[in-house]
Computed example of a mutant assay.
Amino acid sequence: MSEMIADMVEIGRLPDVRMSFHLMGLHVRDVGPSWTYPSHEHPMYELHWVIEGDMKMMIEGQIYDQKKGDLLFIRPGIIHSCKSAGSRGFTYFCIHFSVADPAFSKELERRQATCYESSSPLVKELAPFLTELCNFATENKNRSLSAAKSMKMYAAVFELLGTFVEQLSQTDNFVLTKKELLASRIAENIGSSIRSSLLHGQVEDNERKFVQDIAESLNLSPSQVNRVFQQVYGKAPRKYMSEILLSEAQRLLLQTDLSIDHIAMILGYKTSAHFSRQFKRWIGIAPSVYRGTAEMDEGPPLIPPSPQKSR
């Protein structure tokens, strides 16, 4: 046995990957000149691509004029509304998604809402993937996807998001500050903490003390951890943790036949009642309602708009 090991030369290896990914509301729509969508927010990233026509998107008081081919990126929790801007309406393609991955989140969280023109290098690189997904959505409208088609759709989405992040890095030419590097380490620690909690079923206990544990591991105070993370990611560490848990809960509800009691246990909640209360605080509906709506619609339900924040 020792001779076999000594004679073995490893010439390639990728790291273990465990990513919680949630894709929701991928759709293509044609709307009229009087169409509007009221102010709302959601706990997911959004890519909004205008295929034909003109529209106006208001994001936290700032107006973005989107024309044919322009792409708009919106972060979670950002209040926004939109309406037609032309006399003939417009056609758009929209993707809502969440990815519980520290490296990916780091790239996106440092950027505010941004509109990229159709002539920009970023949109030119993304256009083939956006077009492929538009065609996929159109061809499979109101159809239940087979396992093979679902995987092909995910592959196209990951190609899109991978290219998006790559282009953002090249276009914006960011150099991480010490504060951003520290926030990234905090995010990585949160991810590790959640993976450990899911493995050992201790989310409730961990939720109360994970900031303190991360602070100790980085030789910081809990207040420093909260302040640095808030400044870079735009949210508290506890909220970031809750978003990852929400994404995992939604995935389990939509992609498995596990009972809600079993899902609550996997997520580390001591009772399904506590998990149900927490899930309802997150998105306004109980997990049973969320799953039931998905089953009736044969697809993930849209999260109802949250009340508008005071500004």
Rank of each mutant, 00 (worst) to 15 (best):
L130H: 02
L245V: 08
K239R: 14
F73I: 01
E166D: 13
M58C: 07
V165M: 09
S221F: 09
A127V: 08
L71D: 00
G299Q: 08
D257R: 05
V211K: 00
I303P: 01
I190W: 01
D65T: 12
Y64V: 05
D65R: 11
Y64W: 12
S118L: 08
F174W: 14
R185Q: 15
L254A: 05
F164K: 04
H40W: 02
L253M: 06
R291Q: 09
Q250K: 08
R227E: 09
Q231K: 14
R277E: 14
L302N: 05
F174D: 15
I186C: 03
I285C: 03
D261V: 13
V165T: 15
Y233T: 01
Q112P: 10
E243I: 04
S20P: 03
R185E: 15
K68V: 03
L198P: 02
Q202Y: 12
E132T: 12
L302K: 02
I5G: 05
P287C: 10
K178A: 14
S39D: 03
E117V: 11
S34Y: 14
Q278A: 10
E139N: 10
A215Q: 09
R195Y: 04
I260K: 00
L108K: 07
E46F: 01
P102M: 01
A187C: 09
A103D: 15
C94A: 14
E243Y: 05
F90T: 08
S193H: 00
N189M: 12
M8H: 12
S223Y: 11
V157D: 00
D172C: 09
A6V: 07
Y233H: 12
T163Y: 02
M44P: 00
I11Q: 09
R111C: 10
K67S: 11
E117S: 15
